[in-house]
Amino acid sequence: MRRRKFEEQFFKLLMVLSTIVVAGSLFLIVGTIVVKGLPYMSLDMLTKTPEGGFYSGKEGGVLNAIIGSLYIAGGATILGLIISIPVAIYINLYLKGKSFIPNTVRMCFDVLFGIPSIVYGAFGFILMIYLGMRASLLGGIIAVTLLVIPILIRTLDEIISTVPRELHDAALSLGATRWEASKVVLRHIIPGIITAILLSFGRAIGDVAAVMFTAGFSDNIPASLGEPAASLPLAIFFQLSSPSAEVQGRAYASAFILTVIVLVITVLANILSKRFSKHKI
């Protein structure tokens, strides 16, 4: 009896410790980034592009990467939404007949969700060679769009499937076409769509491997879709390998900026999805 009790206590202790390690690792990571990055933060960092080249110039900031990242993540999320919303609606509200078809389609998106971004990057690269494009903002947006499509579709699919079917039926029984009824459903899930946008944006802005091949890097803020674009993750990666302390400092500052952006986005998404799930029946 004593042994059983001891075993219970022992494993409970192990569990608590594990939970502390798992949950606490967040503080370790964010703490490291803040301690290292905060000292390099300045107004210049946020408002200036690097002077004298991002790899060797010691002056200036990372505005090129901030703007580039916003462009890429924003563009990819918008493009992704244009594709994902119709697909999510189609598999939930249009596909009828055999139930295995939507299930197979869902399985495809589960699998696509698991494909690593380096593979999307490589595929984007092939696509660009095939189309005769150079590394550019547009190339980056296309590759990252492919990456976020499964994220968006899976999130939207889950949200739409929580909408009571009767709501859709109510619109249909008023003589609405499937599209008109779908618009009612979309209206109902607006908070959910925003959650999906945040998740997609957060993933897109942090991704390296997909933009590495396709967006290139530049000291300047891209003025058109055809120009190469810098991004925060690549700014971190490239500038960290520089021997100059000032350039490394830009990398740490970029890491700090990226972390803050991503944390804010994730917190917002969590709050929203909680509020949304409270409303579902």
């Binding site: 509200l93 009828k96 007949g97 055999k98 139930s99 939507p102 859709h168 039926d169 249909l172 029984s173």
Partner: peptide, 9 residues
């Protein structure tokens, strides 16, 4: 009113 059409299988 043919709402049954939308049921799977």
């Amino acid at each position: 009113n043919r709402l049954l059409d939308n049921t799977a299988d």
